[in-house]
Write a protein that binds this DNA or RNA. Structure first.
Lengths: 231, 231
DNA sequence: CTTCGAGGTTTTATCGAAATTTCATGTGCG
DNA sequence: CGCACATGAAATTTCGATAAAACCTCGAAG
């Protein structure tokens, strides 16, 4: 039932995986800014590990696209420019729309029911922990993730789903980088509901269009803020 | 001063990258069969490197999906079952068709010309080095790669293109794993020409259909052979 | 005959130090 | 005054060794 994920060190089987998780979280949350030099010695000291696990974690991050490797010059946090955000959004729209269309074409009754359930749970969870000020609700975030995964789940292409997850994480990084926590004047719940309805109606064209708008809208907000805030 | 190492070392900046390249080639070519246990000590000896670069190479391979990591149990070559090939083909069709449609929508004159050139060069290169028996021609392979890249180049989504490259490599592995070197009764040149023509005519629907058939046909051949040969 | 457990062996994960490369600073010459 | 070069320092990469974990074998009990 309840997941005690806070004690990552205790659950992670090796030091390298623990360090990898913490480092990734620090990059995704923006604590480590884009372009930041990642010096092995300093990191090893601050994370309480040797050079070997740290190097392995960095290598993994580089493969995921969250860090860049410069031969003989170590690692740095991956750049995050508006131009790259543009390519990211475009990739997400193309890939997720294609996956959604295929899901609609192939999905069976079980998929429909799972999607319905995911949308219901997302609706029931509060988006913010505080009604007046936006405070991220981990439960809503988890439901949000599962909803979007449920949309694509029936496409029958596991590598593609894994790629979608990767892009989602990278997008999350940009969201954290911008100061835009909430998007005023937007009813995301309604957007999700509309996407779910079109999908369950097997209206591929409409569902894909709505999903594309869903991502492009968020991208526009974040991109504008990223350009203003400077990065 | 003294360059006693092999020529590949001379181009690779570090031992880890050199080992990574060689190891990847050995997996893609099928020299290391799926599921094969990758023991650190044996690998280090046969590749002439220490444990650290080897571990880093394996870590990178695992991130690319060519190797699997089992915590506290080392690495093994990624599995390659018909079911996974199915997901791979489906991913390629979905992603590449979406990218191609977008390329057709956004492509400018320079893109058209580059595609035309790539198709011309592919046509001019001989598919086999021997007219009677199939012997892979590296030049044709390179032109083939560039042709398919040229098709999608204008989609404006770099992460998606990188993903396409990754899937292409994985597909190449299955091709090498099967004993099917040539596909008799198939005119691939004609298929490529048809795809190029439809693309240059900006006929997205037809181009995408042809591209999908192009991949599904190859997948069917390889899959059938993989099922027969056993894996 | 099967199942369970203890001990030894193999393999991985990690640490600390040496070797190689790059970057920065200062010096000499044109 | 500017540029090329040499030198020193810092960082990365690599190696060898140690510690920890998992696998295998073997034997005994149910």
């Amino acid at each position: 039932m309840s997941q005690t994920a806070s004690f990552s060190d205790a659950r992670d089987p090796t030091l390298a995986t623990a360090v990898h998780r913490r480092l990734r979280e620090d990059i995704l949350s923006g604590r480590l800014p884009p372009g930041q030099k990642l010096k092995l010695r300093d990191l090893a000291e601050s994370y309480g590990a040797g050079a070997s696990p740290m190097r392995e974690a960095l290598s993994k991050l580089a493969a995921e696209g969250l860090a860049e490797r410069l031969e003989h010059r170590g690692f740095r946090v991956a750049a995050a420019a508006p131009a790259q955000l543009d390519g990211l959004i475009r990739s997400r729209v193309l890939v997720e729309c294609a996956a959604l269309r295929e899901s609609i074409r192939r999905g069976d009754a079980a998929w429909e029911e799972a999607l319905l359930l995911a949308e219901h749970r997302l609706n029931r969870a509060a988006r913010s922990l505080d009604p007046h000020r936006f405070v991220a609700n981990p439960e809503w975030e988890a439901c949000h993730l599962r909803f979007h995964q449920a949309l694509l789940a029936a496409c029958g292409a596991p590598p593609l789903l894994a790629f979608c997850d990767r892009l989602r994480e990278e997008a999350r990084r940009y969201r954290a980088l911008s100061n835009t926590l909430a998007y005023p004047g937007r009813d995301v719940a309604a957007e999700h509901a509309a996407i779910a309805r079109a999908t369950l109606d097997r209206n591929a064209e409409k569902a894909a269009t709505l999903l594309a708008q869903h991502y492009e809208r968020t991208g526009a907000f974040v991109g504008a803020d990223l350009g203003r805030g400077g990065a």
